[in-house]
Nucleic acid binder design. Structure first.
Lengths: 341, 341
DNA sequence: TTTAGCACTCATTGATAGCGAGTGCTAACA
DNA sequence: TGTTAGCACTCGCTATCAATGAGTGCTAAA
């Protein structure tokens, strides 16, 4: 078991390391932090903390660096959540509420805010459209071969899907759209299947052949809503970070962050909890062994919605990151749930 | 004046420097390149080329590096445009044609292709919507306070604009949309002004108050189409580039590339020519003093359209970059001009 | 139990010397 | 007169080595 005093020393060491990114020696602690004990005592305690696995030395005559286990303890019991200033809250609200209508724009704005506030890398995924309920639907003729299908959810989110459809007049599209809408309004997108479309065909028997043609196309289009869409920002912040001033390391993380399929995996492996912090190898991706990751998922109408991820060095300012992620996550929940309609 | 032989030597030096990123010595040239002259002769010529300003030495006992003037000569008279393989052409065509309908998606795809092919940083801006002609128009109710305005050009490009509009029923929106479309079809977007909207109001006198409310909103919305929208990709390629393995340099370029207003300036300062290559300080932005930039603008129906930029180290493979930029530029011209409708 | 003192470790820094890639110059050669 | 071999010279780079100092662990005294 770890003593109260050891905990205080560990906290001091991690705080100092977060500031300086340099191995912390016993003298530094005894001088900077008013613990009322000498460097020799601290040395003894440090030796114990190392034996317990919370610290390690990069080499014999250097100070200590927190291990992943040390960070774990720090994160679990020592980090105090920062409170966000009211001006920052206003800024976030003003940028996320009322102005934005398309899911993708919302995500872009949110991911930019996260990256700006934390000065780290942010990733945001948008809710799978599946669980949302249909509130409006239009088809717009774009050219002789292309039609834009516009879906609006009851939560005020818009999604555009492009269909390839041989020459069809706009008034025909209007007719089909209206009929579809009257039948499908209020359904969740995932419940719209071939059966419900067939029903619509009956109503439109005069246009039968167009609808026949449309069914497989719609099916495909709706399937495409299953993918995870994600947005990344703040990657350049990594370059200002001491840990990644080694170009090789920076590059491998850059490549990871540019690989959409890896990020999707990352999101799929996320713990479903409201908020989670993973440190180094806990993340389970070699490219991120030197990073910590704060994740959260926001809900849409109580259902699982999208994800938020912050990636940065292990010595990130967890307090600020956690509070920012929480605040933006809650705001996104509200926006996507249509609270501000 | 520069002799034929000096030109050959200069070409060899620049080729070698492009390969190795190391100062090139006279012995290297005499061994690697079959010019049939000894290193001593080459040394004499190199001294002359340095006096003429085409080369310089980083220090006395080092080989030569091309100066900006040297690159200029190389680019102007020595670079041969590479030809793109037919498989690559097919790839580009398949990814840019037929499938994409929204201007932003098109730009994203194009910028990704450019970055992938050149292994450098690519920037693409999309045409100002102003000059396009209206082919279709719909308003879709999204929530009690929001409406989505969808504009389709005769070139098959779609643009979404969100309007804040107090509770209006969809059938009213439909009526307004239809009337607007019948009056505005074929107009260029920039020609749609308050006067033409007022005319529409007359036709819709039963809905006068809604239209009154709509006019200033539409005016704002159309004004927003004036901005330059741009997309960036391939930034991580810079990290693999020897010149920018110094983190400080990389960071300053990264920050430049993340600053949209700087990029807009860059585009506005672009020469209007079909294709242009600027080297180092010619670009006029300090952050890019160590870079070269290849730019091109593509046309939409003969009018000025959007811009394409490639940014990389001065020792980039100009031949490949030029051919890639040209090919994608032409393809974008075609797509935006609606040739593949 | 704490701490002062001390010997020990080892990364970092700075000075120094040698190496070698490259130059410019000169003199001989075609 | 242009080309080239030869040679002395320059100077950045690397390796070596000693001094420095921040840090440790251990011991013995308070």
């Amino acid at each position: 078991m770890i003593s109260e005093r050891q905990l205080k020393i560990l906290e001091a060491i991690i705080s100092d390391f977060i500031d300086t990114a340099q191995p912390v020696g016993s003298r530094t602690i005894s001088k900077k932090y008013p613990l009322g004990i000498s460097s020799a005592t601290i040395r003894n305690e440090m030796a114990d903390l190392e034996e317990l696995g919370y610290l390690f030395q990069p080499h014999t005559s250097a100070g200590r660096i927190p291990s992943d286990l040390g960070y774990r303890l720090y994160v679990d019991s020592l980090v105090r959540e920062h409170t966000i200033g009211s001006r920052d809250k206003e800024l976030i609200q003003s940028l996320l509420l009322n102005k934005i209508i398309e899911a993708s724009d919302l995500a872009k704005q949110a991911v930019k805010l996260l990256a700006d506030f934390t000065k780290l890398v942010a990733v945001v995924s948008i809710p799978k459209f599946n669980k949302c309920r249909l509130a409006n639907l239009k088809m717009v003729k774009v050219s002789d071969t292309k039609v834009l299908l516009i879906l609006v959810t009851d939560t005020g989110i818009v999604k555009n899907i492009q269909l390839s459809l041989s020459n069809t007049e706009q008034f025909v599209l209007d007719k089909i759209s209206d009929t579809m809408l009257s039948h499908l309004m209020g359904e969740t997108i995932e419940n719209i299947d071939v059966r419900s479309i067939l029903k619509i065909k009956e109503k439109l028997n005069m246009l039968g052949n167009v609808v026949d043609y449309l069914i497989p196309i719609l099916k495909d289009a709706l399937k495409s809503l299953n993918g995870t869409e994600l947005y990344v920002d703040g990657v350049s912040h990594l370059l200002s970070t001491y840990e990644f001033s080694d170009t090789e390391k920076a590059k491998s993380i850059f490549e990871f962050l540019n690989d959409e399929s890896q990020l999707v995996q990352l999101i799929e492996n996320m713990p479903p909890n409201q908020l989670s912090i993973k440190i180094g190898s806990e993340i389970g991706f070699e490219a991120l062994d030197d990073c910590s990751m704060v994740t959260s998922s926001y809900k849409v109408d109580g259902n699982s919605g999208g994800s938020i991820i912050i990636i940065g060095p292990k010595r990130m300012d967890y307090g600020t990151v956690v509070s920012t992620v929480n605040y933006i996550s809650n705001t996104l929940s509200d926006v996507f749930s249509g609270i501000y309609l």
